[in-house]
Design a protein around this nucleic acid. Sequence first.
DNA 1: TGCCAGGCCGAAA
DNA 2: TTTCGGCATGGC
Length: 280
Amino acid sequence: MEYYWKTGRLDLKQTLESGQCFRWRRSENGTYYGISGSHVVTVKQCSDGVIFAADSEEDIRFWLMYFDEQTDYDAVIRQFAADKTLKEAAEENGGIRILRQEPFETLISFIISQNNNIPRITGIIDRLCEGFGEKITDRFGGMWSFPTAKRLAELSPEDLAPLRAGFRVRYILDAACKVNSGAVGLDRIYDMSYDEGKEYLKTITGVGDKVADCVLLFAYHKTEAFPSDVWIKRITAEYYADGLPECMGDYKGIAQQYLFEYFRRRTPADLKRVERSKTR
DNA sequence: TGCCAGGCCGAAA
DNA sequence: TTTCGGCATGGC
């Protein structure tokens, strides 16, 4: 069945190719197809929204939640307008939405992402799913669910060698074992504060500030999280030496996604121009 | 060929 | 508490 969602701002390319998710693919006609849990969907951009094609109404509801239907991004962006740079960043990148992804999948994905690049992250996750997930459909050349913590917890480093994930393998196994044993209860984090959730996730080997922030933002939608790597931290520190703008409020994570894309596309010379104009 | 990737661990200072 | 080398692999 198809469902037209009039969202205005949602831009599929900006959202699905922004580095917050790794299991979407773009077909030649511009349609994206993806999987989460056992839910499979195709989405295409249209003039004032997107069109989902999924198997059931339940799937449609799932994907609306996944794409963060409940947050009013127009209101967030109006709020950001009080800061000149953030306003520009939002004008350029306001089609990005912060997804609500499955926590275990997000945790493992961002463990894999550390000191890594997106094409290789995607390859490792594909091999992980094909090797240890369940085949959900033959469509799109075959799609596999993300493996469960239980499945991964019973594996050895040798079993995971075909992933070619290098030093991250022991982190993946530690996360799977802690989640499977209940030592880390991922569902509990929904009810935790941002700070509590961060400390809790960091009890997993291989989860530091950055990975924890990404999981808290991209799975639990804790928008106070500001998952800055060294590079963007330096840029934002230069821009906002006196502290982050008030207008970010509790949406620092959304602001960060806009700023990340904004800064990434600019050379140092561009940034100096923006810096000068900011002081005027 | 060499650099570097949306980092983290663990040891040393 | 902070700093820094090492880590596996492969895209560019």
